[in-house]
């Protein structure tokens, strides 16, 4: 009985070693052969739409506490990442800024979820974020004043335009200042990314 147990343990160790060797990369990554993965913004989605609204702290809510609250605008960005290398590549994280009407930055998204892209394959990764009319208003008031003035817009006009136009796909959504961090066996490659979803 003891012999059987020892045998089984050795077999399982052996199996572990074999399995581990199966995932060993056939080509060793080097600075010379590490090709840049290809990033594409596959889709832009509003996963849940709650319209355009805002109420200030003087408005008494039916339930809960009063405050300055505005409609949320959740956003999903689905990126396709094509790995042209003969070895797997780790997408360690991504960061990008979302702008409406090309010049109004509303949020910088940081996604630190690690994701492996197999050799020669394409994987998809999703980055989610959420802004509210309140956060957009404060951002515009403190930082966007001159740009609004140049367009002759009030902050409210801009917010209503975005909260109604973006979900309808009638306004362009720009992803810029993107940085995608890829790793392969200790090598690091950071790729910039910029596109407009129309």
């Amino acid at each position: 009985m003891k012999k059987k147990l020892v045998l089984m343990t050795v077999l399982l160790f052996g199996l572990g070693v074999v399995l581990t060797s199966c995932v060993t990369i056939p080509v060793k990554p080097s600075a010379a052969n590490f090709k840049a993965p290809v990033i594409t913004l596959e889709s832009f989605e509003i996963p849940q739409y709650d319209g355009y609204w805002y109420y200030g702290s003087k408005t008494k809510p039916t339930k809960g506490k009063a405050g300055n609250h505005g409609a949320p605008l959740p956003m999903n960005f689905v990126f396709s990442i094509e790995n042209p290398n003969p070895y797997p590549v780790l997408l360690e994280g991504m960061k990008f800024t979302v702008a409406f009407d090309k010049e109004f930055d509303l949020v910088t998204v940081s996604n630190q979820d690690a994701s492996w892209i197999p050799a020669g394959k394409t994987n998809q990764v999703r980055a989610s974020t959420l802004i509210t009319v309140r956060s957009g208003l404060l951002s515009l008031l403190v930082t966007g004043g001159y740009k609004l003035k140049a367009r002759g817009w009030s902050p409210w006009k801009a917010l209503e335009r975005w909260w109604t136009g973006v979900p309808d796909y009638t306004l362009p959504v720009t992803v810029h200042e993107g940085a995608f961090v890829f790793k392969a066996d200790g090598l690091v490659k950071v790729l910039p990314f910029e596109t407009t979803f129309k």
């Binding site: 949020v107 940081s110 956060s135």
Partner: peptide
């Protein structure tokens, strides 16, 4: 803060920190 009232400077601080 990369979204709110101080995001103009907060963004640069946040990415600088990373």
């Amino acid at each position: 803060d990369t979204t709110g009232a101080t995001s103009d400077v907060g963004k640069d601080y946040a990415i600088g920190m990373a």
